[in-house]
Amino acid sequence: MNIRYLVPSLLLIAAPLLAQARPATPPTAEDFGFTYRIPGSWDAIDAQSTLPEIKQQQAATAKSEDEKKEIACVQIPISARHATPPSFLAAMALPFDCFGQILTAKDLPGFAQGSSEGPRKIFDFGDPVYGSYSMGSHSLWIERAKGNPKGHPEMPYTLEIACGLLKKAAVCWMVVAGDDQALKDFEGTAIVLDGDFYPQLVPATAFDKKPAS
């Protein structure tokens, strides 16, 4: 199954994230099996309310009915920004009950790679590094890349995206960080996955090279 197009819907994040922040109550992440609290110095923004219109635009160019279904199922329960320099984070979920299929470990690389394509429509990122790590029974894939907004090489940014499979959904957590502190905020925030608590989303060893088996 080709699932690279499952999450060009991270493009759905682009317009609201680059717009001015506005007060919003994020959708319930717990519905998808996780809890991730927006860091205290960040401001929630409402990406979810823009989804219907943008989904309709994407569906109009979808190449199959399956692709339309995937676009329709994507949700963004968390989105936030932190100013000066502006940084953005979001969580995107593909609920299995809507999609009609449970993704497995063999699907995760394709799902994750598709998720990272969205930000690259807005930013130029190069020299990505990849890693993987475990949180209890959950295996997560992670990517980090350096870059800048298109046409603005003077503005350095870091893209980091971590994706995993929960009982109810496939989920990706993403940050486009304008400074080191924003990246630390994203990585260091505690998370609950399917009821199990972990002190941070991304451990310090996430990018350590694994010994050959």
Rank of each mutant, 00 (worst) to 15 (best):
I142S: 06
S79N: 04
V171A: 01
I3C: 06
H138W: 02
P86N: 06
V192F: 07
A15G: 02
V176W: 03
Q57R: 07
A204P: 01
D127M: 11
L103V: 02
A90Q: 04
M1K: 13
G126M: 06
P8R: 13
H152G: 00
Y133H: 09
R22L: 03
S41R: 15
F186R: 02
F186D: 00
R120N: 10
F88T: 05
K167N: 04
Q48W: 14
F111E: 09
G131S: 02
P77R: 07
H138P: 00
Q56C: 01
K150L: 12
A190Y: 02
M155I: 14
P211Y: 07
G136T: 05
E117K: 11
T25S: 10
G40S: 14
G178C: 03
D31L: 15
T28W: 02
L140E: 04
I102W: 04
L201T: 02
A60K: 07
I71A: 01
P23M: 05
P203C: 03
G100N: 08
Q75V: 15
K150G: 09
D97R: 05
S213K: 15
D107P: 15
P199V: 06
Q58A: 13
A204I: 10
M92S: 13
K150M: 12
P149L: 03
S9F: 00
K63S: 13
A83T: 15
I38G: 01
V171N: 01
R144Q: 13
T61Q: 10
L193F: 08
L183G: 04
R81C: 06
R4L: 14
P27R: 01
T205K: 14
V192Q: 08
A170W: 00
R4N: 14
S41M: 09
A105F: 01
Q48A: 08
S213M: 13
G195P: 02
A105L: 08
I191R: 01
S132H: 11
G40H: 12
A59R: 10
C172W: 12
Q101E: 11
L166D: 00
L193G: 01
I38P: 04
K106C: 05
E65F: 11
L165V: 09
P199R: 03
E30D: 09
F88W: 14
P16E: 08
L159N: 02
I76H: 05
Y5E: 15
Y5P: 00
L18S: 07
G151N: 09
P23R: 05
D180M: 11
Q113A: 15
F99K: 03
P39D: 09
A91K: 01
Y133R: 08
P95A: 07
F32D: 01
D179V: 09
A206V: 07
F123N: 09
T158V: 14
F197A: 06
E187K: 14
D107E: 13
S132C: 11
M92C: 12
A91R: 00
P95D: 03
L51M: 08
A14Q: 03
A14F: 07
G118L: 08
M135Y: 03
G195M: 02
L10V: 15
G178W: 05
